[in-house]
Design a protein around this nucleic acid. Structure first.
Lengths: 152, 152
DNA sequence: GTACAACTTCAAGTCGACTTGAGGTCAAGA
DNA sequence: TCTTGACCTCAAGTCGACTTGAAGTTGTAC
């Protein structure tokens, strides 16, 4: 397969494929002239990378998990710890979702007078203290989220 | 309060406070000489901003929600739609978490032979097709998540 | 054989939310 | 009065994951 074919079948752009190769995440099996040639299993590898990304791994982390031949080489402890991280994220987002949901239907004249909203505020404030900012989930991510939760 | 006091009490750094002011997210009530002076309610406003960030809003979006006087001016429909977005994110992350968890204990000789893992892979792949990448949740975010879920 | 679309490399640009650095000002304590 | 440390402004840098652009090469259809 040439790069365009892989791009079409995987949904990953050609420039991204070159970028991934440069980073060592994937490999082309050879060249035809200048042009890269990829093996069919590249699609599976790319799916694995997508999975990692969607689960919150960085490309560097993913690179560390991929064995030399593109077979996953993931230790189970790492999987457990990552799933625990995800779980904490989920719990936090759930609290936020419920807070927003409540605020939306709350009868208090202004959000500031709603105890639930203020509690949520306190939660957010206490996380800000201890010196760390927060990174948002992008619109792009939200779009993906939508597609994933729709299943296929 | 001067900027150092606000920084200490809110956990937001001085440079970030200046940055927020420049962006129109907050206001100082005046100056003493060159130095900014903040009103006490700045802390509440900052908590609100932290809440927004933690819920996945961008600074620009938050700026749009803050009325002129720093009172939230949030329409309920927007809250609903944001809580729905969060909900979709939660559902996706939940699927990922369960997949990782399963992979960790799965008895298949390699993850690639585990049907559950492959199903997850298909999910991730199908989201990648349709042309979009994924933005990770940073380590910073995960740290925050941890703090928030610990409650205070 | 020639055109040209599709590939190639490499450097630089983008985005959001900040942080850092250089160089300058000034309020408060000794 | 002098010092000094906390503040100020403005420009530039950082991070991760890509994308874009310029300039060059080439497989393939005609």
């Amino acid at each position: 397969m040439d790069i365009a074919e892989v791009a079409k079948r995987s949904g990953v752009s050609a420039s991204t494929l070159r970028f991934y190769e440069e980073k060592g995440l994937i490999r082309s099996v050879g060249r035809r002239g200048l042009r890269r040639v990829f093996d069919a299993n590249i699609l599976e590898q790319l799916a694995l990378i997508a999975l990692g990304r969607a689960s919150g791994f960085s490309l560097d982390e993913i690179a560390g998990m991929l064995g030399s031949k593109g077979q996953p080489n993931i230790d189970r402890e790492l999987l457990i710890s990552k799933s625990e991280e995800l779980d904490k994220t989920i719990q936090k987002l759930t609290a936020m979702r419920d807070g927003l949901r409540h605020a939306a239907v709350c009868s208090a004249p202004s959000h500031m007078e709603c105890p639930t909203f203020r509690r949520l505020l306190g939660l957010a404030a206490s996380s800000a203290i201890n010196g760390e900012g927060v990174k948002k989930i992008s619109k792009k991510q939200r779009l993906i989220d939508y597609k994933i939760t729709q299943g296929k």
